[in-house]
Amino acid sequence: MSRRSMKKILLDADASPVTKLVLSHCEAMSIPLTVVHSRDHVPRDGWPDWVDVHIVEAGPDAADFQLLAECRRGDLVITGDIGLAALCIGRGAEVLQFKGDRIRPEELDMLLALRYETQKARRRGKYGRGPSARSRDDDDRFARMLQTLTEAWSKGDGDV
């Protein structure tokens, strides 16, 4: 399948732990990839020529707004940001988190409420331990779900 006939993957590349996995998968499967990141997160080696790169100025949510502007119905957005995920799902995109969890529309209310409560706790000075360290299992789970979602595209099955 050519890149032109395929939906695209959009990667929220600011602090993404899955960049290499996504690049490798997209190249092997000939899937168009758009990466969005701030000037603070430019990779040392740059990006391959076939990747559509959007570098935005540093600032709160600048990369998120650019990614949202690029997002279309049927695209796959890879992000760790629940707020951005909600906006992309509202546009008809699929969303995959960095640990391999697919966010479904029916989960958004609960996830956004949890995000709100966590932010309130942080403002009160209650900081959790933070996210657990990334494991090989996280990479494997992410790679399996990415493969599942993109295989569904090639079969024309929009609902995985």
Rank of each mutant, 00 (worst) to 15 (best):
Val77Cys: 06
Leu146Thr: 01
Gly92Met: 13
Thr79Arg: 03
Glu151Lys: 03
Ile89Tyr: 05
Ser154Lys: 01
Lys126Leu: 14
Ala58Gly: 09
Gly125Gln: 09
Trp47Gly: 02
Ser2Gly: 13
Asp61Glu: 12
Arg91His: 13
Ala133Thr: 06
Ala86Trp: 02
Val56Ala: 06
Leu114Val: 06
Asp109Ala: 15
Val160Glu: 02
His37Lys: 01
Asp137Asn: 13
Glu70Ile: 03
Ile103Pro: 09
Gly46Ser: 04
Gly90Arg: 10
Arg136Leu: 09
Ala143Gln: 02
Pro131Tyr: 01
Lys155Cys: 07
Val77Asn: 02
Tyr116Pro: 00
Val95Thr: 08
Asp140Cys: 13
Arg134Lys: 12
Ala13Val: 10
Ala62Cys: 13
Gly83Ser: 02
Gly128His: 06
Asp140Lys: 15
Val77Tyr: 06
Gly74Ala: 04
Ile78His: 06
Leu21Arg: 01
Lys120Asn: 08
Ser38Arg: 00
Ala152Thr: 00
Ile55Leu: 11
Arg136Lys: 14
Ser30Ile: 05
Ala85Tyr: 05
Leu114Thr: 09
Val160Thr: 08
Ala85Asn: 05
Arg124His: 10
Ala28Tyr: 08
Asp109His: 09
Leu33Gly: 00
Gly125Phe: 11
Val22Ala: 05
Ala133His: 06
Val77Ala: 07
Arg44Asp: 14
Phe98Gln: 09
Gly125Tyr: 11
Val18Pro: 00
Asp159His: 11
Ile31Thr: 11
Lys155Asn: 01
Val18Arg: 01
Gly156Pro: 00
Phe142Asn: 04
Pro48Tyr: 12
Trp50Tyr: 08
Arg104Thr: 07
Asp159Trp: 10
Lys20Asn: 15
Ala93Ser: 08
Gly130Leu: 14
Asp14Lys: 10
Thr118Gly: 12
Phe65Ala: 14
Leu149Gly: 08
Phe65Leu: 15
Arg141Ser: 12
Pro60Gly: 14
Ser5Ile: 12
Val35Ile: 11
Gly92Val: 10
Gly80Lys: 07
Ala28Ile: 01
Gly90Glu: 10
Leu87Ile: 05
Arg115Val: 07
Ala15Trp: 02
Tyr127Ile: 15
Leu111Pro: 00
Arg102Gln: 08
Asp138Gly: 07
Gly46Gln: 05
Gly158Ser: 10
Glu27Cys: 12
Ile103Glu: 01
Asp140Arg: 15
Trp50Gly: 13
Ser154Gln: 11
Arg122Ser: 02
